Amino acid sequence: MAGQPPMTYLRQHRLALAADLLREPDTTLAVVADRVGFANAFALSNAFKKEHGISPSEYRTRETQTEI
Rank of each mutant, 00 (worst) to 15 (best):
R60I: 05
S55E: 10
R11Y: 04
L15S: 01
D26K: 11
V31N: 08
L10D: 13
R11W: 01
S57D: 10
P6Q: 13
E63F: 01
L15R: 01
L10I: 00
A47T: 01
A43N: 08
D34I: 01
L29K: 06
Y9F: 15
M1Q: 08
R35M: 11
M7F: 14
P5S: 12
Q4S: 06
F48A: 03
F42Y: 12
S45V: 00
E51H: 15
V32D: 05
D20T: 12
A30F: 06
R35P: 04
P56I: 04
G53W: 02
E51L: 03
P5V: 10
Q4G: 00
R23N: 09
L17S: 11
A30N: 15
R60K: 14
L10Y: 13
A41S: 10
D20Y: 09
H52R: 15
A16T: 13
H52V: 07
R11T: 10
P25K: 06
F42K: 15
G3S: 05
F42I: 13
R35K: 13
T8S: 14
I68S: 07
T61D: 12
A19V: 07
R62Q: 14
L44Q: 10
Q12C: 06
L15C: 01
L21T: 06
M7L: 12
P56F: 03
S45A: 09
L44K: 09
V32C: 05
V32G: 04
L21E: 11
R35L: 13
A33R: 06
T8G: 01
L10V: 01
S55F: 05
A39E: 10
R62K: 13
R23F: 00
P6R: 14
L10A: 12
Y9V: 02
T66N: 07
G3I: 01
E63R: 12
A16D: 14
R14L: 03
A19S: 15
P5T: 08
T27C: 11
S45M: 01
V32Q: 09
L44I: 09
L22C: 11
Q4F: 08
G3T: 00
V31I: 09
T66S: 08
R23Y: 00
E51V: 03
A18Q: 04
D34E: 10
D34K: 07
D26P: 01
T27G: 02
A2C: 00
A18F: 03
A33I: 04
G37W: 04
A18R: 02
Y9G: 03
E58C: 12
Q65K: 13
M1N: 08
S55R: 11
H52W: 12
G37M: 00
M7N: 14
R23I: 00
H52A: 10
R35G: 00
P25L: 06
